[in-house]
Each structure stands twice: as structure tokens, then as C-alpha cells.
Amino acid sequence: AEDTGLRVELAEEDDCSNSSLALRLWVEDPKKLKGKHKDNEAIEFSFNLETDTPEEVAYEMVKSGFFHESDSKAVAKSIRDRVTPIKKTREKKPAGC
């Protein structure tokens, strides 16, 4: 878990076949979050590298009641920290992973 206390990992192997990734996010260090959240529950979701933004997904997670508004920035940051390296890898090696 980065300094956000949240862990984001690939829920499925990234085969570069399309722009969507399956990601899984969960709370690894509850002390680092400000608001209420669901402990010991992983949230799996798809993230489209071309159309989605981490902020938008974080907002939807707050709206769905998974996290408190005060933690949406941390959720967005943990998603961004995971998807940015994948985006960069794909830009360097468009021929696929």
C-alpha cells in the first residue's frame, strides 16, 4: 500500500488486448483513511485506460458508499499510481505486452 493505505492490483493478467483493465482495490492500512470504509472487502472494477480517469472512478466509489468523500483523493491517487505505469508501458511497446 502506497502512502494512501490502499492497495490496487490487476485483477486479471494484462494482455494488452484492449484498453480496459480489471483492477482490484482494498484497504491495507485503515489508519491512513479519514472516513468510514469497508474493511477486509476488495472492490473489483474495470478501468478503461482511454476513457476513464482515476478521479471519476473514485467519485463513483464514494457515491456507492465504499469510501467517505474525504478519502476520494487517496482512492484516486492509488488508482492513478497503478494505471500510469501500465499506460507508459503500453505507449512504449504498442506491439503488446
Binding site: 469497508k38 477486509n40 476488495a42 473489483e44 474495470s46 463513483e60 466509489m61 456507492s64
Partner: peptide
């Protein structure tokens, strides 16, 4: 499984399931 819950928000699907025990031990 009964432990998995699906939530939809703005057209996005979130699948909520217990964090695998092995991952919790890592933390």
C-alpha cells in the same frame, strides 16, 4: 458466491468480495 456483491454506479460495475486471507497477511 453469496460473499460477492455487485454494485452499479453510473454504468460502472463494482464487484465487492472479501479480501483474500493471503493478501491480508501481507499487510
Amino acid at each position: 458466491s453469496s460473499l460477492t456483491q455487485v454494485v452499479h454506479s453510473a454504468g460502472r460495475r463494482f464487484i465487492v468480495s472479501p479480501v483474500p486471507e493471503s493478501r491480508l497477511r501481507e499487510s
